[in-house]
């Protein structure tokens, strides 16, 4: 069985930049995995993600999804098969919540009944009662609700791969914790591959079945949370784990 995602020696340099944003990256991800990509800003994690739906093109190397080289696929068709969620959410403000979610099904020319049923199903799944939220506009929702709609919109056409670029980055910590739990539940219920970019170490270790730690365009370690904590690959990773422990100790003091 082919890997869900496979990177073969992928490099990407941006014009005017001295070093590679993503530097000779190799990795594979299997169907159903929840992979979190952890790194500070500028480490190449968003670049890596955006090459999967061809918002960026790699300079060298190959990206293969389910055995198919994406460079030979039509980028528009490819994107319709991949869910994409971004931190700024990017809901279309002039469309209702329902029309936002129905965007990709409409592009794929689904039957109206099928689309409507799917919208209601997704709203329910996102914890938003369809009758109440279907006809609202994005501005009438809270930040957390907007991102629930963002997630529902990305899931609309039942993509096998979901790319999430710091989706909870701008959401208050209480709502974020709840959304994280819900995302985990959601992921467990479906056989989809999630790639989730974050700079929050707790988020990365809480959500990921495997965590990819990146720095300066390289993958430092790509393993299960337990393995990374028990056997950090290098000084950078151990200092990262240590910084999380530090924070933990800070809270322990007040128990």
């Amino acid at each position: 069985m082919a890997h869900a995602i496979e990177f073969q020696n992928v490099t990407k340099t941006f014009q005017g930049s001295l070093r590679n944003a993503v530097d000779h990256i190799n990795f594979t991800a299997e169907e159903g995995e929840f992979i979190t990509i952890l790194g500070s800003s500028g480490c190449g994690k968003t670049t890596l993600l955006k090459m999967i739906n061809r918002l960026y093109e790699p300079d060298t190397g190959k990206i293969i999804l389910f055995g198919e080289d994406i460079s030979s696929m039509n980028p528009v068709k490819l994107r319709r098969r991949i869910g994409y969620v971004i931190q700024q959410i990017g809901l279309f403000p002039h469309m209702t919540v329902g029309s936002n979610i129905a965007m990709v099904p409409n592009l794929l020319k689904w039957e109206k009944e099928k689309t409507d049923a799917r919208v209601d199903q997704l709203l329910t799944m996102a914890g938003l009662a369809p009758e109440e939220y279907r006809n609202r506009y994005p501005a009438q929702l809270s930040g957390g609700q907007q991102q629930r709609v963002g997630l529902a919109r990305a899931l609309a056409a039942d993509p096998k791969i979901m790319l999430l670029d710091e989706p909870f980055g701008a959401i208050d910590s209480i709502t974020r914790a709840r959304l994280q739990e819900e995302l985990l539940t959601l992921h467990r219920g479906m056989k989809k591959t999630f790639l989730f970019v974050t700079h929050d170490i707790e988020e990365a270790f809480k959500l990921g079945t495997r965590v990819m730690i990146m720095n300066e365009g390289h993958i430092l370690q790509f393993d299960t949370p337990e393995q990374i904590i028990l056997h950090p690959a290098d000084g950078f990773v151990s200092s990262l784990v240590e910084s999380a422990r530090e924070k933990e100790r800070f809270w322990e003091k007040f128990k």
Binding site: R81, I86, L107
Partner: peptide, 27 residues
């Protein structure tokens, strides 16, 4: 128009012409 709206549209597989007609013009 907010860059994130264009990015979300493009990332979903909306073509430039569809983005113009369905999203950018109304906005």
């Amino acid at each position: 128009i907010d860059k994130s709206i264009s990015e979300a549209a493009m990332g979903m597989g909306v073509t430039p012409m569809q983005a113009l007609v369905k999203i950018k013009l109304p906005l």
